[in-house]
Amino acid sequence: MTATPLLEVRGINKSFGPVQVLRDVDFAIYPGEVTALVGDNGAGKSTLVKCIGGIHPIDSGEYHFEGTPVSVHSPRDASGLGVEIVYQDLALCDNLDIVQNMFLGRERRNGLVLDEVTMEQLATETLAGLSVRTVKSVRQLVASLSGGQRQTVAIAKAVLWNSKVVILDEPTAALGVAQTAQVLELVRRLADTGHAVVLISHNMNDVFAVSDRIAALYLGRMAAQVKASDVTYAQIVELITAGRSGDLGLTPAVADITNGAQS
């Protein structure tokens, strides 16, 4: 367990017109750990992630990467730092195979010609590094893959680029039991190989199964960021629904203000 976060944002504010979606949000991600980001619908999970990924510019706040302040204005800046986001709609091309999808937009070339051999080899190695055993051939069309396999390919695509931070937006939302287990296993392995992983999920079972830390957003505020081993299932649910649980979370006054501001 490392003491310094790999990526940390402090006091982030973000408004869309009159609606303030994020208020003074602090969020830290550590290498080798899975940090679950939970919160009810509209709590600001996706907005926070998009701010980190450079898709939404932040109104105010600090962005630190490996301890140094950085400015992230575009997705390109974020991926330059090694931050990759795997979105819920996986953004894979059905008509291309696994290798072609993994290298889409960043193809290896020999002069003018695509270097298929190197790409296939790297893709195979990346999948092997994640101990993925569920795909028969890396030359299969993505159209022929199951939901879990697609998720696997999308995640492998994100780690192919020496990424340090991998953010997964609801990776298990549309999957069956066995496939969910498979993807969670992959998420765990990502962290074990040194990546800082953020897992957005509504499923508390998934969250407790793989997370080291849990960050709960409540109506645009960070209610609490705690170690998973220190809290119970019920406490997290309370943090999500009320913003506080016992001495955890927002102080009653802040929670009320937040509530008032939103309703």
Binding site: D89, L90, A91, L92, C93, D94, N95, L96, Q100, N101, L104, G105, E107, L114
Partner: peptide
């Protein structure tokens, strides 16, 4: 390759 990608899934491309 990019032509196939745009034809298969424009958003992904």
């Amino acid at each position: 390759r990019h032509i196939y990608a745009v034809g298969g899934n424009r958003e992904a491309a």
